[in-house]
C-alpha cells in the first residue's frame, strides 16, 4: 500500500462531501414529504430555512468535488514513477479495477452538482419555490453517487500495490487492444476530424436556435452532453497526436504534463464549464411555463446558453490552434 499527503487529502474530501450530501439528503427527504408552500406552520417555516443550509452544503460539495477531481488526476499523474509500466495517470488509474470508475463518478457528481446549483439558483428567484421537488429529487440521486465515489476511491487507494505491473497509455490507447479507449484511438483521423467540427457546428446551430425557441431545451442539453463525449473522443483520437507530435500516443492525461506546457489545464476547464452550463440551461428551460418563473427562466437560459457557447467556442479555438501549430502531418 502506498500513502501520500494527497491521498490523505482525497479521502478527507470524499468523506466530507459524502457526509455533507448525506446530511443534506436527510433534510431533503423531510422537505419532499412535508413541503406545503401554502401552509404557515412552524414546520414549513423550519423547512424553508433548511433550504438555505442545503444549497450552501451543495455549493461546498461542488467546490470540493472540483478540487478532488483535479487532485485525483494530479495524484495519479505524480504516482506514475511508483509503478512498473506506468508512465502517466492512465497507467496508475489502471492498477486496479476501481481507478477509472472513481474518476467517472467524480465527473458525474461534478456535473450533477453543477446542474443542481443552477436549478437552485432559478428556484430561489421564483417566489414560491416552484422547483423544490425536482431539486430535492435530484439531490436524492446525487447522494448515493457520492457514497459510491467514496467507496470506489477507498478501494482504489487501498489497492495500489507497487508490485503490480500495469499497462500504460501506450497499450490502453492503442488500436491493437480492445475496449472503449482502444476503439476511440483507432478512429481514423480524417472522419474523426470532420465529426469533431460537425459536432461543433451542430452545437452552435442548436444553441442559436435554442436562444429563440426555448422548447429546444432538452435537445440543447443532449447536444452539450454529446459534444462533451465527442470532444473527449477527439482528444483521444487525434488532438493528443497533434500535441505530442507522435502518431501513436493517444493519452488524454499526458496533456496535463509539464512536458506539453500543461496544455490540458487550458483545454479541459472550458469544456467542463461549457458542458455544465449547457446541461443546466437545457434542463431548466422546460420549466418556463411555471407562473412564477415565466420571466426568470428565459433570461437565465439565455445567459447560460451564451456562457456554454462561449466555453465551447474557446475549446474549439484552442484545439484548432493546437492542430495548426503542431509539426505533425496526420493527413497528407
Amino acid at each position: 500500500m502506498l500513502m501520500t499527503s494527497a491521498m490523505v487529502a482525497l479521502q478527507g474530501i470524499a468523506l466530507s462531501v459524502a457526509g455533507t450530501v448525506l446530511l443534506a439528503s436527510g433534510f431533503a427527504w423531510r422537505i419532499l414529504r412535508c413541503w406545503d408552500i401554502n401552509s404557515g406552520s412552524e414546520l414549513q417555516l423550519r423547512l424553508e430555512r433548511r433550504t438555505y443550509l442545503i444549497s450552501t452544503l451543495l455549493g461546498f460539495a461542488l467546490g470540493a468535488e472540483l478540487l478532488s477531481l483535479l487532485l485525483f488526476v494530479h495524484t495519479a499523474e505524480s504516482l506514475s514513477s511508483q509503478f512498473v509500466g506506468a508512465m502517466c495517470a492512465t497507467g496508475v488509474l489502471n492498477i486496479n479495477g476501481f481507478g477509472f470508475p472513481a474518476l467517472l463518478l467524480k465527473i458525474t457528481v461534478f456535473f450533477l452538482a453543477a446542474v443542481w446549483l443552477l436549478l437552485n439558483r432559478v428556484d430561489h428567484q421564483g417566489r414560491d419555490y416552484p422547483l423544490i421537488r425536482v431539486k430535492y429529487g435530484l439531490l436524492l440521486l446525487i447522494a448515493p453517487l457520492t457514497v459510491a465515489e467514496l467507496a470506489t476511491q477507498t478501494g482504489y487507494l487501498l489497492g495500489l500495490e507497487p508490485e503490480v505491473i500495469t499497462s500504460c497509455c501506450g497499450s490502453l490507447f492503442s488500436s491493437e487492444s480492445h475496449g472503449v479507449a482502444a476503439e476511440l484511438s483507432s478512429l481514423p483521423p480524417k472522419p474523426a476530424l470532420i465529426g469533431f467540427y460537425a459536432a461543433g457546428m451542430l452545437i452552435l446551430g442548436v444553441g442559436l436556435a435554442f436562444l429563440r425557441r426555448i422548447w429546444l431545451g432538452p435537445v440543447f442539453a443532449a447536444s452539450s452532453l454529446l459534444l462533451f463525449g465527442v470532444a473527449i473522443a477527439a482528444i483521444i483520437a487525434f488532438l493528443s497526436l497533434y500535441v505530442y507530435e507522435n502518431p501513436n500516443h493517444h493519452c488524454p492525461f499526458c496533456l496535463l504534463k509539464a512536458g506539453y506546457n500543461y496544455v490540458g489545464y487550458a483545454l479541459y476547464p472550458p469544456l467542463f464549464a461549457a458542458t455544465a452550463f449547457g446541461l443546466g440551461a437545457g434542463i431548466i428551460a422546460p420549466f418556463h411555463r411555471i407562473a412564477s418563473l415565466q420571466t426568470v427562466i428565459p433570461n437565465e437560459v439565455r445567459r447560460l446558453t451564451r456562457l456554454a457557447l462561449a466555453g465551447f467556442w474557446l475549446f474549439y479555438m484552442l484545439s484548432t490552434g493546437l492542430i495548426l501549430q503542431s509539426g505533425l502531418i496526420l493527413m497528407g
Binding site: 499527503s5 494527497a6 478540487l67 487532485l71
Partner: peptide, 29 residues
C-alpha cells in the same frame, strides 16, 4: 508544486468550511 497547494487547501481550508457551515446557517436564519 501545484499538487501540494491543492492538497494543502484540501486538508486545511476544507475542514474549516465543513466545521463552520452549520453554525453559519444557524446564525443567518
Amino acid at each position: 508544486d501545484l499538487l501540494h497547494v491543492l492538497a494543502l487547501l484540501a486538508v486545511t481550508v476544507l475542514p474549516y468550511i465543513v466545521a463552520t457551515l452549520i453554525p453559519i446557517w444557524r446564525a443567518a436564519t
